[in-house]
Structure formats: C-alpha cells, structure tokens
Design a protein around this nucleic acid. Sequence first.
DNA 1: GTTATTTTGTGAATAATGTAACATGTAATG
DNA 2: CATTACATGTTACATTATTCACAAAATAAC
Lengths: 207, 207
Amino acid sequence: MYLRSNITRLLQYRSCLTKFQELGFETIYSYNLGMHIGVSAEQIRKDFSKFNIRGNKKAGYNIEKLITAINKIFNKTSPQNILLIGYGNLGQSLIKYKGFSRSMFYIKAIIDIDPSKHKRKTTVPVFPPEKAPEIIKKNGIKIGIIAVPDIAAQEICNMIVKAGIKGILNFSSLVLKAPEDVQINNINLGNELEAIFYHIQLKKKNI
Amino acid sequence: MYLRSNITRLLQYRSCLTKFQELGFETIYSYNLGMHIGVSAEQIRKDFSKFNIRGNKKAGYNIEKLITAINKIFNKTSPQNILLIGYGNLGQSLIKYKGFSRSMFYIKAIIDIDPSKHKRKTTVPVFPPEKAPEIIKKNGIKIGIIAVPDIAAQEICNMIVKAGIKGILNFSSLVLKAPEDVQINNINLGNELEAIFYHIQLKKKNI
DNA sequence: GTTATTTTGTGAATAATGTAACATGTAATG
DNA sequence: CATTACATGTTACATTATTCACAAAATAAC
C-alpha cells in the first residue's frame, strides 16, 4: 500500500487550513485550498473522499471540521514521547525546534555516547546508550530520532528496535535495516540538495 | 514529469555503492544492491536502464562505473555554492553539517536579520537580508536554504527568487509560493513524525 | 567447444496514482 | 416553491510506476 504521498498532502492541508482559520475563515472550497498548496481541486476532493471526509455541496468544507477530521486520521489523542539519539549539532537544534510540541511530540530523553554530555536533571535528560532500552520500555516510547554519525547508526537502530521502537526518523545517510513492521523515514540533507540541483538542470533544459 | 522517486533512489544507490566500494568490492548484482536498500532487483535494473546505465550480463555491474554514471546524471562537475537564510539553531547546525561538502555543496554566505550575528570575516560570512540579492547575483548562487521562522519565509522566498535563485530547500512549515521554474523541496520535521506515527498505527492494525 | 548457469535488460501485465467529466445535492434567488 | 448557480463526490479515463516473465548475453564448467 502506497499512502505516503496522500498522507503528506493531508498534513499540508492541515497546516494551510490552520492558517486560514487563524485569518478568520470558517469554510473553504477545494479550489481555494488547492490554489494555496499547488494541488488540483479534484486531488483534494479525492483525498478527503478517501478518508471519508465530507463537505457540503455548494458550501464547501467547514475548516474546523476538516482539521478535526485530519487530526482524527493521525490519531493524535495523546502526546507522543520521542527518544532522541545523538546530541551533536543536529540533535541540539532538534531539541530547540518548536515544531514538535506544536504537533504534540515531545522529546522525552536524549541518548549520547559522550559522558560529558550526560545530565539527568535537565529538562530533557541525557543518558548513555546502554540506558536506552530501559528508557524506551519504561516510557512506552515508540518513535526514535537517529541523529548520530553513520558509523553508529545501524547499531543504535538495532538496539532501539529490539527495545520496542516502531518508528524511526533517520538523519544518518545510511539506509537502515530493520524488520518490516518498523517504519523508517529518512532525511538526507545532502540528497535533498542533489535532487533540487538535478531538477534545476532539468528545468533549464525544458524537459 | 514525475521523476522524484527515481531520483532519490539513485542517490540511495550511490550512497550504498560507495560503502561497498570502501569495503573493497568491485562489482555488484542488482539483487545484492536491492537487498541492502530494500528495493526489488528489477526496480534497480529498470532505474539503471532508464538512465542508460548498462551492466554486464552474468557479471553484474562495475561499482566504480556505476558511481561515475550516477554522478554524471547529477552533473556534479563543479562545486555548487549555496545561500543559507536564517542563522538560528537549525541554521547553525546546518553550517556544521559535514554531509554537504561531501557532495560538493558549499554554503557560501549566510543571511540573518539579527545585526549581532553579522560578521564579514568569518569562514562563512553573515550578512543582513538586504545584501542577499547582491550576494546571489555576484556569486551566481542558484540554491537557497530557508531556515527562518514561518512568518518570514514567504518574503525571503520572494526576494531570493527575484534575485535569481532556482532551487530552495525549505525548512519552514509553510508551503511557499514561487514560479513554476523554481524547484522547492520541503523538510517539515513535525510532519515527518506525524507520518511515521500514522504508519505505525496502520501497521499495528495490519493494513 | 559445447552445455549449464547466472544475471542483465526489456516488453507485457499489473497496480497505483492523478486528471477530467459529469451527475448529484445544496444554497441562494426571485 | 421553482429555478439557477455552484461545489462536491464519484465514475471513467489517462498516466505513471512497479512487478513479472523471459529472451539474450556472458561466464563458468566440463
């Protein structure tokens, strides 16, 4: 099953809808929403229809209901705790990133191999790797963010998956191996730039 | 045209191939490579075939040739200069990120609105926003990384696009509006986590 | 040098995704 | 209360992507 694109679009819809709501709008048409996101109106109606989100013929969609419906799809009933592995530059900026709490994700603990970084009393405590399984199990953490150097990534992955992690946001450039039932999303900044560059070249050639 | 998935796979292939090469391998079979990346062997052959990369029947693909061929597709003949806009937490960690130079992308200059951050003499100099157009034009910069708060993102986007930027890596949660010929890739960390969470739930229900 | 084996490369079949078209239902109008 | 206008929702169509299946080529074995 191939829902990935669908799902990311839904998230974009929600983010855009929230903005419309803040501006005082109460309803929206598929056409408007499409315009603002760069997606066809039919696409939007199809997406909504697929998830059984219904609008009002002639009157469009009620924004609040839409947002509620999308939230329900993502099942955000309770806040989700996250484990961050790697407290280097990237890890530190992730801790300061405000977008996570906006979507009810909280980094509950940090794992790092460097003893000088270990601190138990800070807002987000930092522990050594060997503590990870215990933390995961005790807090029922299901999602981990891997922000360690490539060389350590697979080993960390194995460890946290064994301890019960079911979803990983992987910032290393490795393609991690894990059982089928573990969802891994990769963010590879270098590759993103390469892809952008490639597309620029393509467009230059008018293909 | 819908090459996005193709392209990201090629990049994954390259990254994996490099690792095999470092391990001393000289040739590889589509089957092996597929195993390591989680892609079918046919898919890999199709991808290569599409870009006219040929292997050797029975003897597989020569790794070095493969890497060269992929590099050629991405046309990395000369290093590419990048403009980073926003020198907050994320911006600072991007500067320290080593993966860019590995793929020949160099952050040439940084733009930030905070005067206390402006420095002309550092390795990567920091300038105020109004300097952006000049820097872009003088250095022929084609790619920008937007790492500013949402509120400023669209305005910055307009400015750099007007100055000649053709590709944007957007870390804000806004869906930026720009002309068709500007390639925008979005990285939305909150959405990534949401998507992971969604897939975990799906898998739990065995769908 | 012939045969067996293995792996590529690709056309055909299938699946997934996106687009277009239009019937349906709802609100507004007079 | 009938009519009109308009946006949804769905069916049919078109495009794109993936898998399957197998011929062709290259190596290895005998």
